[in-house]
């Protein structure tokens, strides 16, 4: 096994599972490194962290939130905005593991067909808008109410109930309907992080001079549209929709794709 192939994959799985493990231990064994869950948490019983999209929905629903929740949301917002891309989606969100598994099975069993089934990459922004409108109309955080992300991390930390059906639905949708259908087209949280991740520093950079046009990067990428420059011109991935998973970097045999800072030429 060529470890180079997994140099981001392994740390990614470690952060994803590690964060869940710390949350789980926070509830089950009283560890105080991370308490709560991905919606809102506390680090070492001091630093508050909150999901800025959940807080935004709460505000839209007319909730009077405390400074704690707002500060926590601001911290997370600034953190991901600085890093850029959808680092949350690629490195933290547990649904990524579910959809990556569906993707892997898709490749192994050759399940393909029309990739997008007519679904638009812009759909997530419509879902995002709908979530905010529904929150205002119904007085509850609308996406949090049905979010498979919430069902999954709450399920792991506090017990699933029927929450696994939501997660299974996402898995089956990604496996049989649309490749990367949930994360790449529908998830409003992904849409939210795409919008705020536009100007961060962490970028995948492509060098046309080294490229041999094998297209392995395009094949593996869950958000192909962000690699539109491959084969055309050198440059950084500027779209916020890139999840910074680094799969393109791992599979490139020519060292033509690399992580770099947006400020480096």
């Amino acid at each position: 096994m060529n470890m180079q192939q997994y140099k981001y994959q392994i740390p990614r799985r470690l952060t994803q599972t590690g964060i869940l493990l710390l949350f789980f231990a926070g509830n089950a064994y009283g560890w105080n490194v991370l308490r709560g869950n991905l919606s809102s948490a506390r680090v070492l019983d001091i630093l508050p962290l909150s999901d800025p999209f959940a807080v935004l929905q709460g505000i839209s629903a007319g909730a009077a939130l405390t400074a704690d929740a707002l500060t926590g949301a601001l911290i997370i917002f600034v953190l991901y905005a600085l890093m850029g891309g959808r680092v949350f989606c690629g490195w933290v969100c547990p649904v990524n593991m579910v959809t990556d598994l569906a993707n892997r099975l898709r490749r192994s069993f050759g399940i393909s067909g029309t990739e997008s089934q007519g679904l638009s990459r812009q759909a997530r922004y419509w879902v995002l808008g709908t979530a905010l409108v529904l929150s205002a109309l119904l007085g509850v955080a609308a996406f949090e109410w049905i979010s498979p992300i919430g069902m999954l991390h709450r399920g792991i930390i506090y017990g699933f109930g029927f929450g696994w059906t939501f997660v299974l639905a996402v898995f089956l949708f990604d496996l049989f309907a649309v490749r990367n259908g949930f994360c790449g087209y529908l998830c409003p949280l992904g849409g939210f992080y795409s919008l705020i991740g536009r100007y961060g520093f962490l970028r995948v950079r492509y060098e046309k001079e080294k490229c041999t046009l094998c297209m392995k990067c395009i094949d593996i990428c869950p958000e192909k549209q962000v690699l539109h420059m491959v084969g055309r011109q050198s440059g950084a991935v500027l779209s916020g929709e890139c999840v910074n998973c680094g799969r393109c970097v791992e599979v490139c045999p020519d060292n033509a794709v690399k992580f770099s800072s947006i400020y480096r030429k």
Partner: peptide
């Protein structure tokens, strides 16, 4: 409550 609870479980 259902508007403001963020479902964190703390």
């Amino acid at each position: 409550f259902i508007a403001s609870c963020i479902k964190c479980g703390m």
